[in-house]
Amino acid sequence: MNFWILQSLNGLSYGMLLFLLAAGLSLSFGLMNIVNLAHGSYFLVGAYVGLTVMERTGNFMAAVVVGAISVGILGLLMQRLLLRRLTDHLAQVLLTIGFLFILGDLSLVIWGGVPQIIPKPPLFEGPIRIMESVFPSYRLLVIGVGIVVAIFLWWLQDRTAMGANVRAAVDDEEMAGSTGINVALLMTVVFGLGAAMAALGGVVGGAFLTIFPGQDMDVLLLALVVVIIGGLGSLKGAFVAALLVGLLDNFGKALFPELALFTIFAPMAIILAIRPTGLFGRA
């Protein structure tokens, strides 16, 4: 019993992190048709910026905010100045993979190769007891952050004019444009928001997963898996898929530690075979 509660909470906290990471990727691909392989770099750079802020100020909130905003601006610029001009997927892949390497090497130069960990906020340093088992309170915080962000995004998409515009643009860009929606601006804002969320994930995750060079590639792979399972451009899909991958990954590792890499790719293959557009994707 204990085992299942503990592992489920673990999986949920990891899944929430994946959601923060993958939501932006799913949106930029679904809405703007941009294949952005530099998305993993947003996570890594966000984490490193957060680390620096945390070391300077000791304030975790400041680390989260500065990390998210600075990377959000980086995303805005990338989309506005470069990606917007490219409609060809191959060109996008080449450009963004170039950014992946450049940003990765820049981080290596600036922050070095030593694995780092962001100090947790003092309030969430210790473990708490749940029934008979002990669970790190920080991971509960991560679950909480994930839920809050998910609700916020749902509200933004379903209950605001901006969200309605986004939905319209996803369905039919030209028609949306002809009704007076500034699609170009909308896209830039959504892209920046996606980058900022990945960076938020980086700061939050950097406090319990450690940050190290090469992590950008690792998380990009997971984000792609989540997007494929969830379906392109679907926030609901990204949320469900992220939790699914988080739980599968965790239970896979706990139950069959030697098959650790296999347990997330096998479900992806199965889902692709049954539903090629992903769980919530539209054909």
């Binding site: 691909f29 048709n33 294949v35 392989l37 997927h89 892949v93 590639m217 690792d218 990009l220 792979l221 792609l224 898996v225 997007v227 494929i228 392109l232 890499l261 790719f265 692709l272 090629p276 557009t277 992903g278 994707g281 539209r282 054909a283």
Partner: peptide, 23 residues
């Protein structure tokens, strides 16, 4: 939409290969 899925699938496969090779 189909080509998009195809592209993202290919990209993911390539990355899987990279990551597995680099393990």
């Amino acid at each position: 939409m189909k080509t998009r899925i195809g592209i993202i699938g290919i990209v993911t496969l390539v990355f899987m290969a990279i990551v597995v090779a680099c393990t």
